[in-house]
């Protein structure tokens, strides 16, 4: 029975609930992990002597220190470090802009594909209890879309970029497309799972009020799913901006390409400058995304 101001129960979340296993598995996992750590160190120290211990030697510590101070920070060098020259800052700026552009294009394409397909990947809408007329065709479409999500998601962005530069000439676009392909699978799956996690009762009520399949979609499913889809979309944008540099290595301009070129030309202080720019745009995107997410709520 409902009381006078029965609390409004929130719709179930799309994320998996608390672990379905008992507390026992957590305890055993912790013990097992500790045994693994100890065993691994024993193996490193006693078995693989020539590699393992050199990794911990004073020698390698010195090399790391040298790389950090001499190369990346340019201390003890005759030349002025690149990150202290205004002209190099200005040279890198358009590349940072390109990288930002690539990420926006990537998330844009990805969300278009995900928006157009996610509803067909939701089991409850296609074949479950929200689809009283579900037939074989809907079932096939469901599996086709789910398959598409799996394939696009299983191949990492870097591999997509490798494949795509064979088709397009290197530039921002192939990078954006590589990011978009992988992330359309990620976003599509997330969005489908949002829909699967929705409370079916409001939708059933709409059906009993006479709404057909498409009307239930627009009156029941989308109003509940879209706000959460937007928060996932913004989160993936944050991930994409971090991945643009990796994709840039193989294909496609922006900071990633310049990073690789500077590394191979031993322009380490330029590498430092690229990292500074890169951190800047990552922070910028995080801030924008956090602001937009607050708006979406």
């Amino acid at each position: 029975m409902i009381g006078v101001d029965a609390p409004v129960v929130r719709v179930r979340d799309a994320r998996p609930e608390v672990t379905p296993y008992g507390p026992g598995i957590v305890r055993y996992s912790i013990v097992l992990a500790m045994i693994l750590v100890v065993a691994s160190w024993i193996f490193i120290i006693f078995q693989s002597q020539n590699q393992g211990t050199s990794f911990l030697s004073i020698d390698s510590a010195a090399r790391a220190w040298n790389f950090l101070t001499n190369d990346l920070l340019g201390i003890d060098q005759s030349r002025t470090p690149a990150f202290l020259k205004g002209s190099v800052w200005r040279d890198i700026a358009p590349l940072a802009y390109d990288t930002l552009l690539m990420s926006v294009l990537g998330i844009g394409f990805a969300s278009l594909v995900a928006l157009a397909t996610f509803i067909f990947g939701a089991r409850n809408v296609m074949t479950g209890d929200l689809a009283p007329y579900g037939g074989v065709i809907w079932r096939l479409l469901f599996w086709a879309v789910r398959g598409l999500f799996i394939i696009t998601r299983a191949v990492p962005e870097l591999i997509w970029a490798f494949l795509i530069v064979f088709i397009f000439s290197p530039g921002i676009l192939p990078g954006a497309i590589a990011l978009a392909i992988h992330n359309s699978g990620v976003l599509g799956k997330l969005a489908s799972e949002i829909v699967e996690g929705l409370d079916p009762r409001p939708m059933r009520s709409l059906q009993s009020a006479g709404a057909g399949r498409v009307q239930v979609l627009f009156y029941g499913v989308l109003p509940q799913a879209l706000p959460r889809f937007i928060t996932f979309l913004l989160y993936r944008w944050e991930v994409i901006i971090r991945t643009t540099i990796v994709v840039g290595f193989v294909a496609s301009g922006g900071l990633g390409q310049e990073f690789r070129l500077s590394m191979s030309h031993f322009h380490y202080t330029t590498v430092t400058l690229i990292l500074i720019w890169y951190l800047g745009i990552v922070v910028l995107v995080d801030l924008i995304s956090a602001g937009l997410r607050r708006l979406a709520r």
Partner: peptide, 29 residues
């Protein structure tokens, strides 16, 4: 829906829509 309509005890409405839109949904049939 023209013959029979049901008011459930709870969770009948779409939480993200306005009261007006939820009411208008009675027209969907």
């Amino acid at each position: 829906s023209s013959l029979v309509g049901m008011v459930h005890q709870q969770f009948d409405l779409v939480p993200n829509l306005s009261a007006l839109q939820n009411t208008l949904a009675g027209n969907l049939g």
